[in-house]
Nucleic acid binder design. Structure first.
Length: 741
DNA sequence: TGTACCAAGCTTTTT
DNA sequence: GCTTGGTACA
């Protein structure tokens, strides 16, 4: 993606194709831009934004532009500025949550909050929910709080405040107490003057629904609305957009960009129906399809198209290659024995690419789940190939960072009970559950905040000995830091607080291997605070952005999940683990059935379309899942790619298929060639396969793909002990051997 | 109040 | 197999 920073404003439209131009120049009325992978979506969105400004249709402050990620918002802002030749200010451009936070701070009093409300992170949410659940005496083994939090979030995603949850929407979770807990949880949030992420949207929608004057105010402000990644919007985001877009004068200048084939976040509440329904929701809507792909070779495009055509209920797009001479290599499919071989094959291929001058940063290994990175990391480490793991635990999710932030939150707002609770005994001060219980009681009866309760109990001498000394010390730390905050600013005050409270010393004294890294993270945090004018400004940024700016452009292979790769592109993409149960994920299928299968397929489509030049799919015949080995069947997605665009390397996949479906391996004859029998349920759950394993008698001669021939010397269900001719005695699962005699 | 042990659980995660 | 969280004890 190039930044045409000096493009004269007159020809910003000149290098666009006709559909792209139409998407930009159709400024009036509702518009759906269906943008397939690699069709220049971001470019269209940013040029459209600039076009509205340059033609004088609106001022920057009259355009609402919403994205899902901070990264996308930042990129859009930069690129619009580049087209205009100067930075734009006063924009309503940001993530759904950032914009809602801004709106909510203006109108907080309508939902019984003050404009200084706190935004909770997931840790706080869970701790609060656990507290709320306590009096209900719920068996948390049977009804895990994090699952209940999930249920509450799904309710919020759908715009359901406790009053709007109907019996139909209710659940028997937690012996039917879920709704009551939800109600209490919301009440607690209110007394804490706090919001969770869902509330940011929920409260604003509530306000827009019930306060016509507020809504009218925004109708006056926003002349044009731009929405990115529309396929990922959930119900509450849709309601919010619809409220803002449906003006009383009948004008709805809303343009949504999206791709139904790339909707992969239903498990976070995204409703693919929103994009499928757009034309009904906004009568008279125009639809523009961007189908010219400037990214991938014909072979990759055709393979991906063949795959996604197995989904039903699509809006339908046909990607054409917009590049010349874009034939390229076929999609490679490589069958391997196990995950170690998979890592060896990928590692070897990367080494060869590196030797031929292929930049490492243009290579990605994309997998279904985060834990799958491990064998690849080990292999690349061994080969000395630099790599980075993208995603995983983010900066502001680290325990030490959250601790520090809790200290700063209390400094900024002593009434922040959740933050105070987090650090009251970190470092260890001898404040346990008993002391905390006492404080809670005090705080509840008055009512007041925990910090107030501490001060009261200190002055009335109801605290004794160790805890009294520890808490008065802690209170003194905060008072001192507060004074420093006023005189020397938030950076010095934060550092002082962490030092004097003994928090930093705690990590210095820690002998574990992670401790120095944690101290380094805290140093980085201190540097980040300096970028903000006030402590409050910093805390707001942290709550909404959740990640620290770190531009990584060094020469490293990228390891990430398929979800993490959305919106990115690489010359070469490796797609390991294409096996039934792994991808598509068995758990998804169990929970979501055919809908989930289609989403998994879209995920596969996203994976393939990340590749510009080369895509390599791998599948292993057996894989270790947790403790035990499981034999695997190649993913149905492999079968769904038209044969003419694939190239089976290494061992023939067909041969492998025959081998894995041979009746001698599975007692039942259910398994036949997947290609010839696609309409039949050719796939069985991996767990079922285990049950159908043939009984293998003691003394039988068996054959194992890796170890060769051997004699069965003991058996316990499907666990065998086999004395192999070449490698000696091994413990092996019956699934992996074939009976010879 | 802190530690030791056991059992359960284990995708994806833009904010 | 490995981590995490809750409970039982010292």
């Amino acid at each position: 993606m190039q930044h045409n920073s000096l493009t004269p404003s007159s020809d910003y439209l000149s290098r666009l194709n006709s559909e792209q131009r139409r998407a930009i120049e159709t400024t009036e009325g509702p518009l759906l831009i269906l943008a397939g992978a690699g069709t220049g979506k971001t470019r269209v969105l940013t040029t459209r934004f600039a076009h509205i400004l340059l033609t004088g249709k609106a001022y920057p402050s009259q355009i609402l532009a919403v994205t899902f990620t901070n990264k996308a918002a930042k990129e859009m802002k930069e690129r619009v500025g580049a087209i205009l030749g100067e930075p734009v200010e006063g924009l309503w451009l940001g993530t759904f949550h950032a914009i809602c936070a801004r709106m909510l701070r203006r109108h907080a009093e309508y939902v019984q909050l003050t404009s200084g409300f706190n935004i909770l992170d997931t840790d706080d949410q869970l701790r609060l929910l656990k507290q709320v659940m306590e009096p209900f005496q719920i068996d948390t083994k049977r009804w895990p709080p994090n699952q209940l939090l999930g249920i509450i979030q799904r309710w919020k995603d759908r715009g359901l405040t406790p009053d709007r949850v109907t019996p139909v929407e209710d659940t028997d979770f937690a012996n039917g107490h879920a709704l009551a807990i939800y109600r209490l949880y919301q009440e607690r949030l209110q007394t804490l003057n706090a919001c969770d992420f869902g509330d940011l949207m929920l409260h604003v929608v509530e306000i827009l629904r019930t306060k016509p004057d507020v809504l009218a105010q925004y109708h006056r402000i926003f002349r044009y609305i731009l929405v990115d990644e529309y396929q990922d919007t959930n119900t509450i985001q849709y309601l919010w957009l619809r409220l803002l877009a449906k003006r009383h004068d009948g004008i709805s200048n809303i343009a949504c960009v999206g791709d139904d084939d790339q909707s992969i976040y239903s498990w976070r509440g995204a409703e693919i129906e929103n994009i499928l329904r757009f034309e009904k929701d906004f009568p008279g809507a125009k639809v523009v399809r961007l189908e010219e792909n400037y990214r991938s070779t014909d072979q990759i495009l055709a393979a991906a198209a063949g795959l996604i055509s197995h989904n039903e209920g699509r809006l339908g797009k046909t990607l054409r290659s917009g590049r010349k001479n874009a034939h390229g290599e076929k999609v490679q499919i490589i069958g391997v024995h196990d995950s170690d071989e998979e890592a060896r094959v990928v590692g070897g291929a990367i080494e060869r690419l590196q030797k031929s001058g292929h930049p490492l940063s243009e290579i990605a290994i994309l997998m279904r789940a985060g834990f799958q990175t491990r064998p690849f990391e080990e292999r690349l480490l061994m080969l000395g190939v630099p790599y980075r793991v993208v995603g995983g635990l983010r900066f502001y999710e680290r325990a030490e960072i959250r601790d520090c932030l809790a200290y700063m939150r209390v400094l900024s707002q002593p009434s922040d009970d959740l933050a105070f609770e987090r650090i009251i005994n970190v470092p260890k001060r001898g404040i346990g559950a008993v002391a905390l219980q006492k404080l809670h009681k005090e705080a509840q009866t008055l009512p007041c905040s925990l910090v107030d309760a501490v001060n009261i109990q200190l002055s009335t001498d109801s605290l004794k000995g160790k805890s009294k000394k520890a808490l008065s010390h802690l209170m003194a730390n905060f008072t001192q830091a507060k004074a420093t905050l006023d005189t020397e600013g938030h950076v010095v005050a934060s550092e002082q607080l962490l030092e004097e409270s003994g928090y930093l010393q705690m990590w210095r004294d820690d002998r574990s291997v992670e401790a120095p890294g944690r101290l380094e993270n805290i140093r980085e945090l201190m540097r980040a605070i300096g970028d903000f004018a006030t402590l409050e400004g910093f805390l707001e940024h942290v709550a909404l952005v959740m990640d620290i700016d770190r531009t990584e452009t060094d020469e490293k292979v990228n390891l990430m999940t398929l979800h993490g790769a959305k919106g990115l592109e690489f010359d070469t993409v490796f797609l390991p683990g294409w096996e039934e149960g792994v991808f598509p994920s068995q758990r998804s299928l169990d929970e979501g059935g055919n809908r989930a299968l289609e989403e998994e397929r879209r995920l596969a489509y996203v994976g393939l379309t990340r590749a510009r030049q080369r895509a390599v799919i791998l599948h292993a015949a057996s894989r270790r899942i947790y403790a035990n080995w499981q034999s695997s069947i190649p993913s149905r997605f492999i079968d769904e790619i038209p044969l003419e665009y694939i190239d089976m390397r290494g061992e023939s996949v067909e041969k492998r298929r025959q081998a894995s479906f041979s009746p001698s391996m599975f007692a039942s004859g259910t398994f036949t060639s997947t290609r010839s029998n696609r309409s039949q349920p050719a796939y069985k759950r991996i767990t079922d396969i285990k049950e159908t394993t043939a009984h293998i008698p003691l003394g039988a001669t068996v054959f194992h793909q890796k170890f060769g021939e051997g004699l069965v010397i003991s058996s316990d269900g499907d666990r065998l002990e086999v004395n192999f001719n070449n490698v000696g005695i091994k413990r092996i699962l019956a699934n992996f051997v074939e009976i010879k005699s």
